[in-house]
């Protein structure tokens, strides 16, 4: 089985890239691979524990009916497989004040990303555009 490392920069709710990365991670985990994700800059907000579903007044639906899976719920689900390791860039977290994460997320630094890249079968770098 392979190990994949992904560096990601986009914040939640503003790009399709974040969902795509989670789709790729889900596919990799289902295939038995290990996935490392290094969240840099705005991507550290993907794991914030206090993200909450909300109602949709346009559709007239409640929060329960909307059943909005926040990015941190998706990530918590992936972490629950034991095959995903997630590191948030610590300095990026500090400048955003976004340190309350779902369980299993770790604080780290670019050196962790470099180490992962050396140990992985492949590394995918996804910048923000």
């Amino acid at each position: 089985m392979a190990t994949l490392t992904i560096a990601l920069m986009d914040p939640p709710y503003e790009a399709e890239t974040t969902t795509t990365v989670l789709r790729i991670a889900d596919a990799a985990v289902r295939k038995g691979h290990r996935v490392n994700i290094f969240a840099y800059e705005g991507a550290v907000n993907l794991t914030m524990k206090d993200q909450a579903a909300h109602p949709n007044p346009v559709k007239g639906t409640t929060a329960e009916e909307e059943d909005h899976p926040t990015t941190s719920r998706f990530i918590a689900g992936l972490l629950g497989t034991g095959q995903l390791d997630w590191i948030n860039c610590g300095l990026c977290v500090d400048e955003r004040g976004s340190g309350n994460w779902v369980e299993g997320v770790r604080r780290g630094a670019p050196a962790d990303f470099f180490k992962w890249s050396q140990e992985s079968d492949n590394t995918l770098v996804i910048g923000t555009k």
Binding site: A2, L4, T20, R23, I24, A27, A28, R30, K31, H33, D121, N122, L124
Partner: peptide, 11 residues
Amino acid sequence: VDSLVDMLAQA
């Protein structure tokens, strides 16, 4: 994306 992962998994 399943096929994409297969390609990525090739070192």
